[in-house]
C-alpha cells in the first residue's frame, strides 16, 4: 500500500510544484477537449462504423467501392 501512496504523493507534489507545467497542462486539456469533444464528435465520425452495422456490410461496401468505384 505504501508504494501506491508514494507514487500518488510523487505525482501530487509534482503537479502542485509545477511552474510552467501548469500553463502547458491547460493547453493540453483545452486541446484534448477540442479534439475529442468537438472534432471527433461533430466532424470526424468513423465513416464505416457509423454507416454500417456489421463487418460483413462494411466488407461488402468496400468491395463494391473497389470493384465499381463511383
Amino acid at each position: 500500500m505504501s508504494i501506491f501512496k508514494s507514487i500518488f504523493n510523487f505525482y501530487y507534489s509534482g503537479f502542485r510544484e509545477m511552474k510552467l507545467g501548469k500553463q502547458l497542462w491547460i493547453i493540453i486539456l483545452i486541446k484534448l477537449f477540442f479534439m475529442f469533444a468537438i472534432l471527433k464528435l461533430f466532424f470526424f465520425p468513423n465513416f464505416l462504423k457509423s454507416n454500417f452495422h456489421s463487418d460483413k456490410e462494411r466488407a461488402e461496401y468496400v468491395t463494391e467501392q473497389l470493384t465499381n468505384p463511383k
Binding site: 479534439m35 472534432l39 470526424f44 468513423n46 462504423k49 466488407a59
Partner: peptide, 27 residues
C-alpha cells in the same frame, strides 16, 4: 516539455482522418 505538450496528440487527428476521410484505405 513545451514542445512535447504543444505537439502531443496532434497525431491523433491523423487517426480521425483515417476513419472519416480515408475509410476505404483504413478498411
Amino acid at each position: 516539455g513545451i514542445n512535447f505538450a504543444i505537439g502531443v496528440a496532434t497525431g491523433i487527428i491523423l487517426e480521425f482522418e483515417f476513419g472519416t476521410n480515408w475509410s476505404n484505405y483504413s478498411w
